[in-house]
Design a protein around this nucleic acid. Structure first.
Length: 121
RNA sequence: GGAGUCAGCCAGACAAUCGCUGCGCCUCAACGGCGGGGAGGAAAGUCCGGGCUCCAUAGGGCAGAACGCCAGGUAACACCUGGGGGGCGCGAGCCUACGGAAAGUGCAACAGAAAGUAAACCGCCGCUAUUUUUACAAAUGGCGGUAAGGGUGAAACGGUGCGGUAAGAGCGCACCGCGCAGCUGGCAACAGUCUGCGGCAUGGUAAACCCCGUUCGGAGCAAGACCAAAUAGGAAUCCUUUAGGUGUGGCCCGCACUGGAUUCGGGUAGGUCGCUAAAGGUGUGUGGCAACGCAUGCCGUAGAUGAAUGAUUGUCCAAGACAGAACCCGGCUUAUCGGCCGACUCCCAUC
């Protein structure tokens, strides 16, 4: 059980454009930060799911886009059991690529706790 | 030892923990277990050239584009190799958009008399008129000769010397340069202490239009093929119409399809394939100056699809740059912290 606790496979991701539009059209919870924005809704499945939108417009280099995706996924993977069952989308804003790994993790920690508080209300 | 030229290589390492992904095995099966694989020299820019797929089997003409010393290499190229011409460097070497200006059209600021069927501003020379003077001569004007000198310019219609002349001038001669023809060498570009002819013509710009030669059909993996909810309507045979529309891309020709009746079926979301074994890498032998070819042995090397290849911690060092595959190759260009190896050149010191 302990081994399966921190897994992150396809069932914990938003896979189709339909999944994304559902969240985008009516997000009950919004948490923002100068470099990041989190949209979320209650999930239909028991599993929380994550989607990422890292625009080329805001993060220019492919290397930095990949880094942000990996770090956000890693943070979600480690914190998913502190969250209720939600579908969340994380959007990168301009300047997100300037954050260091440690900064990004601390910011995301705060954002996840704020999302959890809103969702459990 | 210093300075430099060319060519090549590496792109932090190791460990622990937690993950991601596709492959193989175990299992009826699994979201489980085990094993081994998982970004680059530029993966980038998308600038060229191909493979592959579809459009007609890619055909004719116009238009357009690219290329442009010669030979070779290659699947092909705008790439590479070797050679020639020109330029730069003491040198190793480097650079080169390097066809045609005696087909045509155009362009050239400023300066300058004149910028191309050359041209007379100053100067030089001759003749002549007037004035001055005893005279020699001088000054001014007119007519003519002259490209040697001055001055302008990026560039002024061969250069130097001798002769020649009123002064001059390829006007004549010698040498140098140039053009044409021949000869010799070279596959060729081209070269020559070679021979003859010509007093010398043809200013520059073609990365201006243009001319000449060569090459090029179009679209791209969201190509395309298959399985298939939904919704709208199709294919085969016969008959009719050759006008318009569509495939088809800049245009025209050409080619295919279309309207009605009968009989059968079709294809968006989503999924599967295409999808990685490839003009592949490497060793040896062999042909070639080389690029590369041929023969043979070995290796088997990412394949995602809301998109994997990561995170944290620790140790070490020379303290880690630029940067992330998206059908695949060959190039080019651009970005790049440091470091290593080889060949060669110049300078200094020593023997």
């Amino acid at each position: 059980m302990n081994a399966r606790q921190y897994c992150f496979n396809k069932s914990s991701r938003l896979l189709s454009s339909r999944d994304f539009t559902v969240v985008f059209d009516n997000p009950p919870f919004k948490v923002s930060h100068p470099q990041l924005l989190v949209l979320a809704k209650h999930a239909n499945t028991p599993q929380s799911r994550l989607g990422l939108v890292i625009g080329k417009k805001n993060v220019k280099h492919a290397v930095h886009r990949n880094r942000l995706k990996r770090l956000i996924r890693e943070s979600f993977r480690l914190k998913q059991h502190n969250l209720p069952a939600i579908d969340a989308i994380v959007l990168a804003r301009r300047g997100a690529d300037t954050l260091s790994n440690a900064e990004l993790f601390s910011i995301l920690d705060k954002l996840w706790t704020r999302v959890a508080r809103k969702a459990t209300k």
